[in-house]
């Protein structure tokens, strides 16, 4: 464990807390893409299959349970909570996210470390997470006003993977010198997808203006 990875995990956890706070406090999920949240449930379930079979550390196990639990809670809120589900606007959540599953799965069948169920699904989860934010970014571009909590949620969700890139640099040059091409490339693609969001987010923060993404 190094500081970059710990900071990354904490930023990731914080983004989820910000989202749960927004939904629970405002009883509204306006501006949030249910499709991105559903993709994240699939990401966590396929990545943490070893939750009960491989013990890495207490921290690792606890965080996996927290990520699976909170992602399920968010999807539950948006689908079934009597008040929150009324605020979900499926007409603006238009991205065909199921079209992301097959290409990521096929790519994982072709490009992986070991051809085992665990490893192919773990690889699939990395490819899927790289593109899981697309429905949310598309929704933000179409929504007129982005509320602060939603903007902060997306910012921290993007920042966490950027911190993981620093963690990979640190591990490669200062620790085990092992190339991890699959997480590295997936993580870079994931972080790059946030590039324009980061630009407009920081610009709006500097100019103290409302965050607005160009359509």
């Amino acid at each position: 464990m190094n500081l970059f990875r710990l900071a990354g995990d904490m930023t990731h956890l914080f983004s989820i807390i910000v989202l749960l706070l927004k939904i629970h406090a405002t009883k509204s999920c306006s501006g949030i893409s249910l499709k991105t949240q559903e993709l994240y449930v699939i990401v966590f379930l396929t990545r943490y299959l070893d939750l009960f079979t491989r013990f890495v550390s207490l921290y690792n196990t606890v965080m996996k349970i927290v990520f699976i639990g909170t992602s399920f809670a968010i999807v539950w809120y948006m689908r079934y909570h009597k008040v929150v589900k009324q605020t979900y606007n499926k007409d603006e959540d238009t991205f065909k996210h199921y079209f992301l599953l097959l290409p990521c799965f096929v790519l994982a069948l072709l490009l992986h470390n070991e051809f085992t169920t665990m490893d192919v699904l773990w690889t699939f989860s990395l490819y899927l997470e790289a593109v899981a934010i697309l429905p949310q970014l598309v929704l933000l571009q179409q929504s007129r006003n982005i509320d602060n909590l939603t903007g902060n949620y997306v910012f921290f969700l993007g920042a966490y993977r950027g911190l993981y890139v620093l963690n990979w640099i640190y591990r490669y040059f200062l620790q085990d010198h092992r190339a991890r091409w699959i997480p590295w490339i997936s993580g870079l693609v994931q972080t790059a997808l946030y590039a324009d969001f980061f630009y407009y987010y920081i610009l709006s923060w500097k100019k103290h203006e409302k965050l607005k993404l160009p359509a």
Binding site: D50, V56, S57, N60, K64, Y164
Partner: peptide
């Protein structure tokens, strides 16, 4: 050097 455990990251 000791091989780090596989998939030790979240």
């Amino acid at each position: 050097n000791r091989q780090p455990p596989k998939h030790d990251e979240l």
